[in-house]
Design a protein around this nucleic acid. Sequence first.
DNA 1: TACACTATTTGATTTAAGTCAAAAGAAAAA
DNA 2: TTTTTCTTTTGACTTAAATCAAATAGTGTA
Lengths: 190, 190
Amino acid sequence: MSISDFLVSLVPFTQTELQDILAHFKKESVSKNQILVRQGQICNALYFVEHGMGRSYYLNEGGKEITQWFFGVGKFMTSVDSFFQQSPSLYYLEVLEDSVLYRISKSDLDALFYKYPKMEKMGRMASTEMLTRVVNKLNAIQFQTARERYDYMLSEFPDIAYRVPLGHIASYLGMTQETLSRIRKNGSGT
Amino acid sequence: MSISDFLVSLVPFTQTELQDILAHFKKESVSKNQILVRQGQICNALYFVEHGMGRSYYLNEGGKEITQWFFGVGKFMTSVDSFFQQSPSLYYLEVLEDSVLYRISKSDLDALFYKYPKMEKMGRMASTEMLTRVVNKLNAIQFQTARERYDYMLSEFPDIAYRVPLGHIASYLGMTQETLSRIRKNGSGT
DNA sequence: TACACTATTTGATTTAAGTCAAAAGAAAAA
DNA sequence: TTTTTCTTTTGACTTAAATCAAATAGTGTA
């Protein structure tokens, strides 16, 4: 999904507005395993994923990587807390496959919010959509067994589940990779 | 905290704008245990809590009430998924103490978003704030022991932790009430 | 005050998932 | 192709928290 399709799907921008907005996004090709933001840095960019995928993760007390979220095609990717609050990031932001991203800085985005109030709507909608998804994950994590959580993962990120290392998914789902391996072995849900 | 203080703290509305906006909120006194929204209903109202508190919960397969969120003074309360998507609510919305709420309908709110683009900013900010909080809970639930999760609860809702039945808190934290009772018994954190 | 009802605590037992350790399989590098 | 390195699987054992069951403690009210 291209970024202009995405924008138009949320808000009916005119052709002129769209051109102006798109001019503020910079296309970037990023190769696998590249880290976009490190823990402690202030994340100054919002990325739209046109192709590829990424994840956010952090290092727990034991130094183990814990995946916080996956970002697939057609989504915005950033260190949410850091970008919006402009505070040091709790997370690393990493690209998991060679990807094509569209990047915009916080100041440019704020300028667009100011210039086009319609953009605020887009921001609000992207934010509530993310909120809904996080709430879904929360419910999965909080009340479901390891096996059900894996089924949730398959429905939420069907395209991603088989493209990333098992360990990344296990930590995303709050279980060990041994457990996830055993779940996969015992066939799919039901 | 009053609703006008809250609004002004987020966006610098003029006195006139503020009056107009406030006119669309209707003050309601709601008594303890009243249910504002039921599972399956479409939630048409957003409430600002001036005094008192509420919670959202749902019934799991076994018919047990599972608390999803607490709403304290100075926060917006609603069935998030239902209100924003205008879809049948997954949750009940209940008032836990005699409360004073300010209510606005979805259509009035949308009209305000349209009339005052500044409102969009308020919506976006309220939404990202909620997102941050949900992410915090998620991290607590996903990676912490029952005892640490209780400490998280005390920090997130210090004023609420001792005002609601233990069972409500236990289900919010994804543990049984027996476990929570044992945690409380063994003194506070560390 | 006593009764009924609800909430909390305590005890005994079970279990889902974690931990630790090592083997097997894949992918990358030499 | 062989070696090295990383990823996934398997096995044995442990444990935090759940479950089941019952006893207290509180609260409202007749």
